[in-house]
């Protein structure tokens, strides 16, 4: 369902081109729960940005749901992001002025759905992540774990085929992190949601179906010692 072939990406730092991704290939099956680990600065976030259509690779092929994305114009990329991809970030990235359900509704806003319908679906999604009573709360009235649940509800509300989570438990203490992990597991088991979770935490990775390690711009199945 997600298929990256020979993706390369380098950044300019000063005068030199610094290669971050180097002929990287990755294939994720529908309903899979994949963990990506790797040292800080190894290019995990860069990979997620490319997989999430936020960044363009220098070269390589990209396929999502059997559809080639490589040469899409910006407008269509936005639409694919809106319909097929959900993001969960380490620092939640909620909008402070919007209450919980309004934050959840953002992906629906760009689909031209009526406001009642937006609210109905957002509330349903908040209930699914266990925050039905907090729908009208602003993010700063919520704990870290609750905020991440709101962010997860937001990633799920548009019923995307792929969820990309960049260190979703990185800012949470271990117990809350485990609760979030269990939420992911439940969603994956019950709704067959495809998840790519970038993490530093071996316990998180251990609960996923498969773990890949990012090193020297490539993904490998074994961590190098």
């Amino acid at each position: 369902m997600l298929k990256l072939t020979n993706i390369s990406k380098s950044f300019c730092s000063g005068h030199t081109q610094l290669p971050i991704l180097n002929n990287l290939s990755l294939s994720v099956a529908k309903g899979e729960m994949l963990a990506v680990m790797g040292r800080s600065g190894s290019g995990k976030t860069t990979l997620m940005n490319i997989a999430g259509l936020l960044d363009h690779p220098d070269s390589g092929e990209f396929e999502l749901n059997g559809r080639s994305i490589t040469h899409m114009p910006d407008n269509e990329l936005s639409q694919v992001r809106n319909e097929s991809i959900g993001f969960v970030f380490q620092s939640f990235h909620l909008m402070p002025r919007l209450c919980a359900w309004e934050n959840v509704a953002i992906p629906l806003l760009y689909r031209g759905i009526s406001e009642q319908e937006q609210k109905r679906r957002s509330l349903a999604m908040l209930a699914k992540v266990g925050l039905a009573e907090r729908a009208e709360h602003k993010p700063n009235a919520l704990s870290g774990g609750q905020r991440q649940r709101v962010a997860i509800a937001r990633a799920l509300v548009g019923e995307p085929s792929l969820i990309l989570a960049d260190e979703p438990t990185g800012a949470l203490d271990p117990q809350v992190a485990q609760e979030i992990m269990e939420l992911f597991l439940t969603l994956n088991r019950e709704e067959r949601i495809t998840l790519v979770i970038i993490t530093h935490d071996p316990r998180v990775a251990a609960q996923c179906h498969r773990t890949l390690y990012m090193q020297s711009g490539k993904l490998s199945t074994e961590p190098r010692v």
Partner: peptide
């Protein structure tokens, strides 16, 4: 800026 980034990630087009 960050709000704009979030909205773009959630599928907002430039026109939006």
């Amino acid at each position: 800026k960050q709000e704009i980034g979030i909205r773009r990630a959630m599928g907002a087009k430039q026109q939006d």
